[in-house]
Amino acid sequence: MSTTFEQAKPRTETPFRHDIVGSFLRPEALKEARRKFRDGEISSAELKAVEDREIARLVGKQKEAGLRAVTDGEFRRSWWHLDFMWELDGVEKAVADKGYPFLGAETRAETARLNGKIGFTRHSFVGHFKFLKEIAGEDVVARQTIPAPAQLLAELQRPENQASTEAIYGDAGELVSDIAKAYKAAILAFYEAGCRSLQLDDCTWGMLVDQGYRDGLRRQGIDPADVAELFARVNREAVAGLPADLIVATHVCRGNYHSTWASSGGYEPIAETLFGIDGVSAYYLEFDTDRAGDFAPLRFVKEDRQVVLGLHSSKFGELEDKEAIVGRIREATKYVDLDRICLSPQCGFASTEEGNVLTEEQQWRKLRFIKEIADEIWSRS
């Protein structure tokens, strides 16, 4: 394949030219161990031993696929977001009225609900990161993924959680402030554990672009722009004043559950607000289907920030057309210099432990394919 792209500079820090969002399909051995643990057939120590073994194997496979930043695949989690929230002070696991709605599907009915003021004391994820960093070694970057502060705010504002949230926080400003403080403390704990690449996963923006969702807010007398500003505020406050050598990226998604999706719409309605949040170095953006709109909103991305184009779908195993991907990258350069572009799937392969509908081999083949395209465009940058 030949391109007319000019040579871009090599990437020496995250995100890299070919990258991942974070989660991977759970291997059968891990699924079986988690089932046995839930049924009381094995101890937590025995489950951890299986998790450790499978994460070590996963890191090895990521290296074999040529990835320069690796994650633990979220192998110790059931959800991409709730498991993190449940361990914050003042937050508890609760049964929801219903699961999250997706196209033709509904998730398990679980949520995070308040039982006190939000804070951060300790978190098992910090120990999980230490294990990842140790087994990753010095030749790759160990990346930590957690749900964005705005995601917790949105969870606490779900209709079934509204009463408990308002009972503890009569003032929305205090709620936002406490979420931001707890997150900052958590992020600094990861930093002390050696983390230098942190990713905030955030579906709130993916919902705010959906016209149906925006219309629903308006029917309640709520201006979507005010919601966007509140989400931006809590994210901004959480990442303000962090160490200069900590790279913070954010990932925006429109839903990723068992190969289905939850919302549609281009970034234009929220682009100026989203891309205006200080303290973020890169954006992992969903662009694998027409549901994500065109690239024009990228004109709002500041010149010191990277854009990771999620042009490949993690929802199915078939490989995309190479020339079509190259053409879309070329189209994106109308708004963002090639030097500021990277390539990845639009989301992880298993945002929940159920995973998307493809095989592990298809998962790895897709990542090798992304590397192949990135190597040819950026000359092994």
Rank of each mutant, 00 (worst) to 15 (best):
K93H: 13
L67P: 15
V95F: 00
A96N: 04
A94W: 09
W80L: 03
A69D: 12
S78K: 11
A96R: 02
E74V: 07
K93I: 05
W86V: 10
K98F: 04
R68P: 05
E74H: 12
E106F: 00
A65L: 14
H81S: 15
H81R: 02
R77H: 09
E64M: 04
V95S: 11
W79F: 15
W80Q: 05
A112H: 09
Y100L: 13
R76M: 02
E92C: 08
D83A: 08
E74P: 10
G66Y: 10
A65C: 13
G73E: 08
A94E: 12
M85N: 14
A109K: 08
E110L: 13
N115P: 12
E74S: 03
A109F: 08
R108S: 10
F84T: 15
P101Y: 02
R113I: 10
E106L: 02
K93A: 11
V95R: 11
A96Y: 03
E110M: 09
F84R: 06
W79R: 08
A112F: 00
K93V: 07
N115A: 04
L67Y: 09
D83F: 11
L67N: 13
T71V: 02
G90V: 08
M85K: 08
N115Q: 10
W80K: 07
L103E: 15
H81I: 08
D89N: 06
M85Q: 15
F102W: 10
H81F: 04
W79H: 08
A69Q: 12
